[in-house]
Design a protein around this nucleic acid. Structure first.
Lengths: 355, 355
DNA sequence: CTGAAAGCGCTTACAG
DNA sequence: CTGAAAGCGCTTACAG
């Protein structure tokens, strides 16, 4: 407990505005010497260094990172832009980013774009004014623009799951096609042939990739994904319910539905229950993302588990390599990393009903 | 689309290091005039202002917020400390904070304490060095220390759900007692008399308040909360499973269990299922928090819904009042705000089994 | 209305 | 090993 108290005292007992000059005056040296001592410069003999550090501590000196940044041209801070932090998909990613950033001595400024392209640009502009050393943008709605117009952008940028394909920008993304193909193989192996897709109507690239991944993998097994069985929601529970309703009301309805994400799948589970359709006996459902709650639902959800924390970590690591090119001894810096998810089979999928 | 491109160009096309001096040279005025023009000072006539702003825009000038902060002694940035951003309880709070902060022109630096007091102090120290205008700490493990030793702390601080009661520090907290009392009244009304409590063994103040709130409200209804029926986990699903097991295995077990939070309740649901105990017929379960997934579980969970986003918003608003005392015309600044949750009854609670 | 000057609190090449 | 000096890019009181 005493240790804690001391640490706190060290952190806080600074009289308003104790600067390097004040410490210099008290120690009877120049402020240059104080600066060197506090940074443990090898130029300063140990004894002097210790004496000065003791004085600084006693007077609660706290280095002004703002002033330091102005001199060094580095803020040791990165900006992270997500659509919303309340979305568990994003919060796990941010958790991974923060972990790596922190270990490398970087702070994280969090900003939200609300999935609005103009706001995303405004937010990135603010981050630039604040002189972030680098920026990560998740689910970018303007990814292509960064590339087309700012290839020589002087602020290092890494995109996560960007919604505009490009090979100009550095990015880390989920392997959507491969994940959807895993679902296709699973459903085909169970014997399904009438398969539906509940997508996202916002025109996201990830939606297109999941759709195509499903379609192509089914086709290579001789199963056709009928246009009739494709509907689009908004990636959320309520929107999914409304979008899937006509599909469930069809006389000849699919026996399995692959949902754009777990939140959508939740809506389908609810809507199917309301329509008196039993899962998985009458209808199989697959999600995508592997959110925390998937195993605990009234119907435990088969889904493609994404290593969200790892995605965040890798994106931050990519950014670090850009920030410290000298650290990239092995030429680790790739332009694009694709990360594979893993199908987890649970109770929401089963063979189709007979007949 | 053209608008977007222009906005982006404005944001980015800055040659490395275009400063106010460069713009001054190009415009043929002093850098003081440029500074005033860009800040729309009333001293500068409209025509001059527009000319200078046009030049700045053309050359992709982006004000250096670091330099500005050094002069103005304000960073327009606040620090937010949470135990983990991956916890949905926290991410909703941060979402509310970010919303209010943003609207007021503040950026948010996010830092995690990992529920470790020493790390919490280290993190707050960093935030101070970075000259945050204010700091919010959620679920503080060292709340009391801030108060005892740093009442005259020069950095405005607001705690959220601090785990050390104090009236010296500004704080916003859940009304734990009242929430637990709602649970007690609900269970008593259903006819339960053998009631258990699955708490948190980490010694959190919120655990004690929920325990006491339950106990006292039961007592006032003539029901005794038996020590035998009190166990403690760690607030997480797996820890809850292990903690509750002995309780479920008792010959004479409780007919209802109030869980410290929804994550714990999840563990009890799982463990009860494993033991072949039917919910709610043989056992009623109540959670606390009202996390997103509560209605979608295999047993829809009765829980005390907390307005998490609102808690974040109010905490940030309290901090804003401290940052801008002049804005507090109506004397709105209270030291402590308690926010009430709302019991939501779902399928996990029912009358006790007969006999 | 405009500019020269001081200053915010650091870091670091330069000279000794 | 140490200090005086310059400089990072702004804002703003002061003088005109």
């Amino acid at each position: 407990m005493l240790v804690l108290l001391d640490a706190t005292a060290f952190a806080f007992q600074r009289m308003a505005g104790v600067s390097i000059k004040d410490i210099a005056r008290i120690a009877g040296v120049s402020h240059s010497t104080v600066s060197r001592a506090l940074r443990s410069s090898p130029l300063i003999p140990e004894q002097t260094r210790k004496r000065i550090q003791r004085i600084a501590e006693k007077h609660g000196y706290s280095a002004d990172a703002v002033a330091r940044s102005l001199t060094t041209r580095k803020t040791l801070t990165i900006g992270v832009v997500v659509t919303s932090i309340a979305d568990p998909f994003n919060s796990d990613i941010v958790d991974g980013i923060e972990d790596v950033a922190n270990q490398a001595g970087y702070s994280v400024v969090l900003a939200t774009s609300q999935a609005n392209p103009e706001r995303e640009l405004a937010v990135v502009k603010t981050l630039r004014e604040r002189r972030m050393d680098g920026v990560l943008v998740a689910s970018s709605r303007v990814g292509a623009l960064y590339a087309e117009h700012f290839a020589n952008l002087e602020i290092p940028l890494v995109l996560l799951n960007n919604q505009h394909p490009t090979d100009v920008v550095h990015s880390v993304t989920i392997d959507n096609r491969e994940g959807a193909a895993q679902v296709a193989r699973h459903l085909a192996a169970l014997g399904h042939t009438k398969i539906g897709y509940l997508g996202d109507r916002l025109g996201l690239h990830s939606d297109r990739e999941r759709y195509e991944g499903l379609r192509d993998a089914l086709r290579s097994r001789g199963i056709r994904l009928s246009k009739e069985f494709v509907v689009r929601g908004d990636g959320k529970t309520q929107g999914a319910r409304e979008a899937v309703r006509p599909l469930l009301e069809k006389a000849n309805r699919p026996t399995a539905i692959f949902c754009y994400n777990d939140m959508s799948a939740l809506g389908v589970i609810e809507e199917a229950e309301k329509c008196g359709i039993e899962i998985p006996r009458q209808l199989s459902i697959c999600g995508f993302d592997g959110l925390f709650f998937a195993p605990f639902l009234k119907v435990p959800l088969t889904t493609v588990q994404q290593p969200r924390r790892e995605i965040g970590r890798q994106a931050m690591q990519m950014l670090l390599l850009r920030l410290r090119p000298e650290a990239d001894r092995n030429g680790h810096l790739q332009k694009t990393i694709k990360i594979k998810g893993q199908l987890v089979v649970r109770g929401s999928t089963a063979p189709p009903p007979r007949g």
